[in-house]
Nucleic acid binder design. Sequence first.
DNA 1: CGAGCGATTGAGGATATTCAATCGGAGTGG
DNA 2: CCACTCCGATTGAATATCCTCAATCGCTCG
Lengths: 242, 242
Amino acid sequence: MLMQGQQAFENVDLGAKAVQGNSLSSLFQMSATETVEAGKAICWEGDAARHLFQITEGVVRLHRIIGDGRRVITAFHFAGDVVGSFLQGDFLFTAEAVTDCKIRRLSRKQFQEEIERSELLRPAYINLLCRETASAHDQLVLLSRKNAEERLCTFLMKLATRDDQSLRQGLLEVPMSRQDIADYLGLTIETVSRSISKLAQRKIVAPDGRHNLRIVNLARLAQLSGNVDDFSERTCHRGSVH
Amino acid sequence: MLMQGQQAFENVDLGAKAVQGNSLSSLFQMSATETVEAGKAICWEGDAARHLFQITEGVVRLHRIIGDGRRVITAFHFAGDVVGSFLQGDFLFTAEAVTDCKIRRLSRKQFQEEIERSELLRPAYINLLCRETASAHDQLVLLSRKNAEERLCTFLMKLATRDDQSLRQGLLEVPMSRQDIADYLGLTIETVSRSISKLAQRKIVAPDGRHNLRIVNLARLAQLSGNVDDFSERTCHRGSVH
DNA sequence: CGAGCGATTGAGGATATTCAATCGGAGTGG
DNA sequence: CCACTCCGATTGAATATCCTCAATCGCTCG
């Protein structure tokens, strides 16, 4: 119903990704692979958006700074994702590598020409834009009406149900820092930390270093995310396209 | 820079709207006009999204219900706006008339065919999708990091700078209820009410009935919105396209 | 082994929520 | 025309959640 969580973090819907993501990927194949060290920026908010990027390896965060320096992370992106698809003039965010990354670059001009030319790429692109918007709306719901625990559980569920590799035998990799998570969820670092601790006390997750979490009770985590029937059947036997 | 507020409420950027909005409008010209009474629904979250709508007259709210009945309004739409552009399968929101409305309906199938056919409509559509995503991101920033006053001021500024008619001689029409505003801003009705009262005390606005506000000090309102340089030059002499 | 830094934990405080009472305009009936 | 009712909006008091400030922990890396 809600489709929440189905596209984790902006556009990671494997069902669709397998089709569209890959077809858009073909555009970037020709480009050279660049290496971006963890913490380094890929582009800056306010600059002319002359390029799009595809992430080949690693994790990227998009953020905006408001007024006095408050930071908002609007999205995380993972291997396979295209960054900047919805830009028209300037970059509306700063993109930074969370982990060491490999990326490919494509000029927006060329991207648009190719999209306009190919009857195959066009629907893939439109599909991507639609999923980005839908995901942004999911995040609106989270920020608007969920409490700290629900936010964190939603976040962890999305990470855990990305069918990359990320969840091997219940062990979830969380590459981003607590501060990143906080700025993504509209909380403070302390509240994130406390929420994780409480989940650990209740034996729903078990932290293992800063960047790993053992998901002990996935079903409970899904319940606590406040996403009703999402993360239930839907995400368990996915692959089916609606 | 930030482009926040430039497209008020999802896609109301008159600069672009004059161009793209109108060209997409042509698609709906053939459809019969339907009348929707204030408060009535136009479509329901979860239903198959077989149609798109264009609003000819009136104001529409889009909302989602989460879990126990918390409501989130993800967008308001006004005359000229297209509703449902980014849907792929089911409706991700319930759309309801805030005021008495006139709408036109178009099947998604036909919409997609026309878009695919016309080299003029396609960029207009893509442009719309991009602006919807950008607007959603503005709203993410608001919900993530702004306090009650900043949220309200941002909302009022967006209303006031829609170059519809809405602001005649400093008198701003606010067609939606306090509850609608609260659910859009991620606040409670009481907090919205109190925030308005405080702005009134400080002589920044002057309420005139439930649905009208005299904007006494627009510049101050802009400052308080927390959108830095937005709503400044940008929104004052708009019409220029970047 | 020590330094540094991210993360955790605790105490106190601020902002927004909740609960409750009152206000006041719009619509209705006498 | 006025009183009455209804319902959305306003206002107040108490509470809760999250934030801020501060101390400590404990990896990670030199």
